[in-house]
Design a binder for these strands. Structure first.
Length: 191
DNA sequence: CAGAAGATCCCCT
DNA sequence: GGGGATCTTCTGC
């Protein structure tokens, strides 16, 4: 497995989103293959936390270098993991929505309290992999949280895209096909 | 199986 | 004070 270096994250957001498909996300001994992501385009994207250039305590890390983790609390009880993209001053991000569980599956099941639905959803996968807000701002080219390449080949024809999930409030942006997933993977989130 | 509702709390206005 | 890049549980068919 080759850990992705810092420059991997310098690609334009949508290209990086597609490049993340098929990679392995590792946190310590726990890990899985990325099968679904969503791109958030920054100030021009009504669905993005950084829409309109909003700079707050929460969104601060999005304005920093690409390749750091943006992790936030959602609905009071779950956390979402994003990869910051776009580079300094361009607050874009990619939400990791689903993994195929591969390493430490028993631990994931224990953490989730069930043996199914371990990592098919942004809140589920962070719970399974024990990823919380203490890792906000972490550089994703370093231990303990990083992406790597195990040689898995994503067939270009298997990459699907469609509207993002849970952003109905975002007007026209709600329909932009900025959710990417690998077709045929049961790990893809269901919502 | 589908839909509704509840949980829960930080963030921002 | 309102709402959210979610998930689980419960209800009813």
């Amino acid at each position: 497995m080759r850990t992705m270096a810092a420059d991997f994250y310098s690609a334009p957001t949508h290209l990086l989103a597609r490049s993340l498909l098929g990679k392995i996300l590792m946190h310590g001994q726990l890990g899985g293959r990325v099968v679904e992501v969503e791109a958030y385009q920054g100030p021009s994207d009504r669905a993005a936390h950084s829409f309109g250039g909003r700079l707050t305590q929460r969104t601060r890390v999005m304005y920093g270098p690409a390749g750091v983790a943006y992790i936030y609390l959602i609905y009071g009880m779950y956390t979402c993991l994003n990869v910051v993209s776009g580079g300094e001053g361009r607050p874009e991000a990619i939400l990791i929505r689903a993994l195929e569980p591969l390493y430490g599956v028993d631990t994931m099941a224990r953490r989730r309290g069930q043996s199914r639905n371990l990592t098919n959803g942004p809140g589920r996968l962070t719970q399974a992999l024990n990823i919380d807000r203490s890792l906000n701002g972490h550089c994703l080219w370093r231990d303990p949280l990083f992406f790597s390449d195990d040689g898995f080949l994503v067939q270009p024809s298997a990459v699907r895209q469609g509207p993002r999930v849970g952003v109905e409030y975002a007007g026209a942006a709600a329909k932009f096909p900025w959710r990417y997933w690998i077709d045929g993977h049961l790990g893809v989130s269901t919502r």
